[in-house]
Design a protein around this nucleic acid. Structure first.
Lengths: 225, 225, 225, 225
DNA sequence: GATGAATGAGCCTTCATTCAT
DNA sequence: CATGAATGAAGGCTCATTCAT
């Protein structure tokens, strides 16, 4: 899905980029602290070192800032993950492990933004929401693809349904670290959280291997469940 | 944690209950549609078939409505689950299956409320937020306990960490059905979602059984992962 | 000027009297503490041990309460002063001394009411304000008359203008004790305030005697007065 | 006592001064007519020829307007009186006469404000009230000082108590002209009020001279004062 | 382009008054 | 008559957005 274009009075695209970045950085801080609605455009302008009126040379409405926020968030996740996975040469479930680890690390770095994402999506206009949901779908597909390829390399075949759910689970487990950090961090560090969560995940896949790949074999214990 | 008391001008506790229910039902509809901040007290009053000033006979501020919402939500979850599990005589992992099924069904019934819960927790005042977090902790403990007992009955022992994470996962997987319903429902019905999610979950526990319970045994395949 | 009649739903005049008294007593307390506008009818009702709606069986509007307050205040002043002066047999300037003393004592007893009188007269409706001003004029005349008679008895004659001003001064000096009590009470007790204020007052009258009545005479002993 | 600072959104101090003046002038008119509580911020804005929200660029709350009013009132009294007494070269009781005359003239010019001062002091917040009372005390001291010096120059010595009361009396007699103008103006012009009031005042001081300083002396001619 | 003062719609809340019970 | 829940007009204040400079 193509980005929603935000028209501006200003034409100089370099300046637009620069100032929008300022606006965004200020917004993230403020949104995290007080939420989108409690944050005023004046505060954003001040925090972005711009004059009150200037903001409106780079956006059309406060709404746009929220959209810009989501757009930037997805861009960031994409860039960071692709970056980190570039030289990764793992295969099979090891690649999955690797991906989850990198993904969780990314979320940890942007946990503020992730929490905001959960809080404020309802404030998006329909147009902007559609873009965000499309982006989310793209990311699910991306994860599904990684999973699919990796699992196949280990000779495991799973149904489309399960693949889909596993992908969604990974993504949500990442978000969880952000939005349930207040309680998870009492028990886990990012590392231990990643390890335990991944172990469980891999175990469920291997479970799958047994049940699905080889249905004629005598399945142990599980048949009774 | 004790409920935060909300004083009222009116004394008649029957009326209070009745009107608060009206206010809540109206609010849920509106919050779901537009979020807490976009919903005005006038809209709530109108939608609750009350006069404009009357809602302030039953609450003290708009804030209270949000708190009432969270309070009711947790009460509802507790009541519904306890109700449903009352005559359950399953043991072991079957009990876990059963619990997850009932829990997901509850969430499905109150998926609107669950989504709102995720969006609006930031809008709670600190006092009210503390109550909500305490309630959430209580629920995690409740799930941990079910898991612990059930797993033991099947002769599986797992670390406190894993137990904690599994409980959190179950809870979040329930919420997921609400807040990611927009995409999950393209692939799953509640039943299929429950089945697949539970299968994965049980598999990960059985995986645990192999790795943790019997460490001296030669662990298959997994060690290489 | 005749009292402004306040119509009521209730006819039983005994009850009216009783309940209005309750309302007034509650109001004085509350008006002193928070002023007329900050005091709600609910508070008055509660403080008067009546139900919210009942108040409106004895008055027509919150405005009426304020009027009732002023009416009662003037009645009280009249009654109290007449009561106290009944058996007074002083003559001449001694009668003035006596009157001032009694008047200041009355004001001291109702200093709360007096302060309220000053604060809230602007809140009276025009109709009610006219009644109050008429009452005030009556009181000025009453004081002028006392002065006139008393001074004449001592063989002092003063112009109508001066008489008028002296009467107003006495009245305002009484009020002063109420509305400037916050500072006067740092220096004076009611007794010392009365003494010093009266001494000054008598001296100014005796001054008048000299200047106006008989410029060449020497002044007699004031100490006896 | 230092002025209570009222923060503004706007920085331009010239504009602040200008707009606050507008607000104040509008407020005085409206407060005089209807009192502080009956006057709405909307009315003030309209009457001050400002847009509705704009007044909140120059004040923080309706309360501030009242405070600004009192502050301006005291400033005005100080400035006007000092201005008028600058070139006054009278001595003794003549200086007192002169001061009273100027003071009454000032009050007459700001009689609306003076009446408002009496009605609305209860509406001030505690912080602001304290400032006002401190200012009032300062003014009492100022008047006491003038009296003290002037009287001494004429060889009259009076007790601290009497001095204090005389100062308070002068001040209240000024206020009286404002808050009892509705009746005093039926009998007096400012000039005649001033003359009669001052004559009485001087007589009471001369009375003091006789009683306190030298009880046996004969009284000299007052007519020259 | 930048600035920040001006605008006014809209929000939450209060409270005098009414009226069904 | 008494009660107190219901009503809704009105008030103080905020803040996204505009626009003159």
């Amino acid at each position: 899905m193509k980005k929603v274009n935000i028209s501006t009075k200003t034409k100089d695209s370099k300046k637009i980029k620069h100032h929008r970045k300022q606006i965004l950085e200020a917004s993230i801080m403020l949104f995290k602290e007080k939420g989108y609605h409690q944050t005023t455009t004046r505060e954003i302008a001040k925090s972005a070192n711009m004059s009150y009126g200037s903001i409106y040379d780079y956006i059309n409405s406060k709404d746009d800032i929220l959209y810009l926020f989501y757009e930037a968030l997805y861009d960031q996740i994409n860039v960071m993950i692709i970056e980190k996975l570039r030289n990764n040469e793992c295969k099979g479930l090891l690649r999955v492990r690797s991906f989850v680890k990198e993904y969780f690390m990314v979320i940890d770095e942007i946990s503020n933004e992730t929490s905001i994402m959960y809080s404020e999506s309802r404030s998006l206009s329909e147009l902007h929401l559609n873009y965000v949901l499309a982006k989310e779908n793209e990311f699910v597909d991306y994860v599904k693809n990684i999973l699919h390829v990796s699992i196949q390399e280990d000779g495991i075949f799973i149904s489309e349904d399960k693949l889909s759910l596993l992908a969604n689970n990974i993504i949500v487990h990442g978000h969880m670290w952000a939005f349930r950090g207040w309680t998870l961090k009492k028990t886990f560090t990012l590392e231990s959280y990643t390890k335990v969560q991944t172990d469980l995940f891999i175990d469920s896949i291997i479970g799958l291997k047994n049940t699905e790949v080889n249905e004629v074999e005598t399945v142990e214990t599980k048949s009774s469940i």
